[in-house]
Simulated scan of single mutants.
Amino acid sequence: MTRRVLVPLVLGAASVLALAGCAGSTPAAGGSTDDAGKVSVVASTNVYGSIAQEIGGDFVDVTAIITSTAQDPHEYEASAQDQLTLKGAQLVIENGAGYDSFMESLIEASGSSAEVLTAVEYNHDYPGAQSHDHADDASSSPAPSESADAHDHADGDGHDHIEGFNEHVWYDPHTVEDLAKAIAEHLGELAPDHAADFTANAETFTTKIAGLEDSLGQIEAKDAGAKVFVTEPVPVYLIEAAGLSNATPNEFSESVEEGQDVPPATLLESLQLIDSGQIAVMIVNPQTGGAETTQVMDAAKAKNIPVLEFTETLPEGQTYISWMQSNIAALSDALPA
């Protein structure tokens, strides 16, 4: 049974919208700067588009392929207009690890020579990623599992879904911090005259990330170990950063993520866990769902367990920082006093 309950995507020109707040001009073909002299950046989702806009400021033209919470990157089918957009990019930002696999085919089909940054490679849990001590070196970009330079996407190596790895890395503040520094570095290479601006913007952005981490630390100080049930693994990095425990049976969240039926035994285990009173809060992803998701949500509400919604893509009118601030505040408020 198909479990994704999303609004159908209309292909064509309407499928690519300029990120809110960014210039709406079409990137020039061949990867050059646009008519205003801005660096053309294409991101797979508006999450990474927002981060790129924060770093690039007035000197970038950012386009996000996926801009709506009604679209699911796992299942997105790219259009001819998307291909044209990629063709004009100088810098491409993708998530990787199979999350936005449509980007791989787009990059190859467009013949793009743009530099590609893959967010998962800045995550400490990514297979082969080199460790990076944020306390010791807050000013330099980490060395990801491969070079942060342009990748050969034609072979597809390292970009498929990795069993046991949570690819939703934008919910991990450390990953986003390191990615932001890498974006600033690459933008500086593409537009040297504005390199100092990109560096300054990245420093401002990472200061805001530190603020998010402080808020997460406050949750940990009062609620460390509290159990959270997640219908899909989207927010797991964030709850772990808050010192909370993911108590969800793995097969439940993995089945929902893969669009499969939750095994009856796993569903029963989940319902018994919720009924036991051990769960402090439930977090659901409104971009996916099905009968079992509804069932556990109803069970949580019947036990007066707060149910929060954390999306995969940026809600309208939010920046990455304001979005994460809202999520953290909602989590803090939902936990018992």
Score class of each variant (00 low, 15 high):
218 Q>R: 13
263 P>E: 10
256 V>E: 13
278 Q>L: 12
278 Q>A: 15
279 I>Q: 01
246 N>E: 00
249 P>K: 02
268 L>V: 14
253 S>M: 14
259 G>Q: 06
221 A>G: 06
264 P>D: 15
209 I>P: 12
255 S>F: 06
272 Q>P: 10
290 G>L: 09
246 N>F: 05
248 T>K: 04
268 L>G: 11
214 D>P: 03
283 I>P: 00
237 Y>R: 00
224 A>T: 11
229 F>K: 09
208 K>Y: 05
207 T>M: 13
244 L>H: 07
273 L>F: 04
207 T>W: 11
256 V>Y: 09
224 A>P: 03
243 G>R: 02
249 P>C: 03
224 A>V: 06
241 A>C: 09
220 E>Q: 15
238 L>M: 14
211 G>E: 12
226 A>K: 15
255 S>K: 05
264 P>R: 13
259 G>F: 08
268 L>D: 15
279 I>C: 03
267 L>F: 04
233 P>Q: 08
240 E>Y: 06
276 S>Y: 10
205 F>H: 08
270 S>L: 11
256 V>N: 13
282 M>W: 09
203 E>T: 13
204 T>K: 14
259 G>D: 01
260 Q>M: 13
210 A>L: 10
290 G>R: 08
275 D>L: 02
290 G>E: 09
266 T>P: 13
209 I>N: 12
233 P>D: 10
286 P>C: 08
209 I>R: 09
234 V>E: 01
261 D>Y: 11
252 F>C: 11
278 Q>H: 11
206 T>D: 12
270 S>H: 09
244 L>Y: 06
244 L>T: 06
223 D>Q: 15
201 N>F: 03
236 V>K: 01
255 S>W: 02
281 V>C: 04
271 L>C: 00
252 F>P: 04
273 L>I: 04
269 E>Y: 05
233 P>E: 11
286 P>A: 08
253 S>G: 07
266 T>M: 07
232 E>Y: 07
273 L>E: 11
229 F>N: 03
288 T>G: 12
265 A>I: 11
240 E>D: 13
282 M>K: 11
289 G>K: 07
261 D>H: 12
273 L>W: 03
238 L>C: 07
205 F>Y: 12
289 G>R: 06
232 E>P: 08
266 T>H: 09
239 I>S: 05
293 T>S: 14
281 V>R: 01
260 Q>F: 12
239 I>A: 07
201 N>S: 09
255 S>T: 08
262 V>H: 03
244 L>M: 08
252 F>R: 08
252 F>Y: 12
236 V>W: 00
248 T>A: 00
255 S>M: 07
205 F>M: 08
290 G>W: 08
211 G>M: 04
266 T>C: 10
227 K>F: 09
254 E>K: 14
235 P>V: 00
249 P>M: 04
246 N>C: 05
206 T>A: 08
227 K>V: 02
267 L>Y: 01
201 N>I: 01
267 L>P: 00
277 G>M: 12
228 V>D: 01
212 L>F: 03
290 G>M: 09
277 G>Y: 10
274 I>N: 00
230 V>R: 01
283 I>D: 00
254 E>L: 13
280 A>K: 13
266 T>E: 05
270 S>Y: 06
271 L>M: 05
273 L>C: 03
249 P>D: 01
259 G>I: 05
215 S>R: 14
210 A>S: 15
263 P>S: 04
261 D>N: 15
219 I>P: 02
218 Q>I: 10
205 F>N: 06
285 N>H: 11
255 S>V: 07
